[in-house]
């Protein structure tokens, strides 16, 4: 008998897209969060890239940030960890739009 627990070490991951596809997002017409990539270019921490649970902050080659608002949990992590004034505008999506949790 092996000492490895069943499943451990075995490659059984799911892709991040697959993970996000389990969530119901009712995407609104308005981007409820916007990112000013010019401000981000001078940001050294890129805290949002690590912390955003939906992995929506994509660093670009020129040091900026590419952001898509569609698959957002509206959790608030990004504006809390971002230390750069003016990098983010953060609002809730219009009523009835955005994430809908079925198993929260």
């Amino acid at each position: 008998m092996s000492t490895t627990a069943p499943g451990a070490g075995r490659w059984d991951g799911i892709s991040f897209e697959e993970r996000m596809a389990t969530v119901d997002f009712r995407v609104g017409a308005r981007a409820h969060i916007t990112v000013d990539t010019d401000v981000c270019r001078s940001c050294t921490t890129k805290a949002c890239v690590t912390a955003c649970p939906a992995d929506l902050f994509a660093p670009t080659a020129d040091g900026g940030i590419l952001f898509n608002y569609e698959e957002c949990f509206e959790c608030g992590t990004c504006y809390m960890v971002c230390n750069s004034e003016g990098a983010l505008t953060w609002t809730y999506p219009d009523g009835g739009h955005g994430v809908v949790f079925h198993h929260g």
Binding site: W11, G13, I14, S15, F16, E17, E18
Partner: peptide, 18 residues
């Protein structure tokens, strides 16, 4: 189902993981 590619840089390791 889309499965992610394993992360290792070394192709041999990726193959081993897969």
């Amino acid at each position: 189902r889309v499965l992610p590619a394993p992360h290792d840089d070394d192709p041999r390791l990726r193959l081993l993981t897969l």
